[in-house]
């Protein structure tokens, strides 16, 4: 019996990927989706808290140039046990910065199989598909899957409110004594 065309490994032009760990689990991401990798130690003092928002996986923002990146906890996103992150991925074409345990290696993927249809939960938004690599199977993440449009809208709203509060506080402040 032949597998369906959707489930058959699709030949890709070799795509360079980064294998990384979150909460001890192995994932892959296209290296073209990662703008920059930084150590979390180097971010001290550059992050801002986002208090009281319902997107619990995002607790901070980082401003880089004209863009505000929302810092997503990889463990919270995937529902894994909290683990200290050592690196952060700044992703392209999405205002997302992803906290990860570390990078395993860079490698090349030549086949990507669509996520089998029985997987019918949120994971369909998380993964581009599954890649067989070195006798293991690695989920390949969608960079835009870390924050949905609804979550981004909500976070943008929280940021706007915070900015308004900050502005009104600064205008209401008494003038300094001459």
């Amino acid at each position: 019996m032949q597998p369906s065309s959707a489930n058959r490994p699709r030949a890709l032009r070799a795509e360079q990927i980064i294998l990384f760990r979150v909460g001890g689990q192995l994932f892959a991401i296209s290296s073209a989706s990662v703008q920059e990798v930084r150590s979390v130690d180097g971010l001290t003092g550059t992050t801002q808290d986002i208090p009281n928002n319902s997107v619990t996986k995002v607790r901070h923002t980082i401003r880089r140039g004209d863009t505000t990146h929302y810092v997503v906890s990889g463990t919270a996103h995937f529902g894994l046990a909290p683990a200290p992150a050592s690196l952060i991925f700044f992703l392209r074409q999405t205002p997302t910065a992803l906290l990860i345990d570390g990078i395993e290696k860079m490698t090349t993927m030549t086949y990507l199989q669509a996520l089998p249809q029985p997987f019918c939960g949120e994971e369909r938004d998380w993964y581009r598909g599954l890649a067989p690599l070195d006798q293991t199977v690695v989920p390949v993440v969608k960079p835009e899957g870390f924050l949905s449009v609804a979550e981004l809208t909500l976070l943008d709203g929280v940021l706007r409110d915070e900015m308004k509060k900050h502005q009104s506080n600064s205008t209401a402040a008494p003038p300094a004594n001459p």
């Binding site: 689990q25 529902g79 199989q113 089998p116 029985p118 939960g121 067989p132 199977v137």
Partner: peptide
């Protein structure tokens, strides 16, 4: 092979002749 997902009825996937089977 197990990885995070939200479909409780599924355990993971196996690799069989290059194909990934839930």
């Amino acid at each position: 092979f197990r990885f995070p997902h939200r479909t409780a009825a599924l355990e993971g996937v196996i690799l069989r002749r290059g194909r990934i089977i839930p």
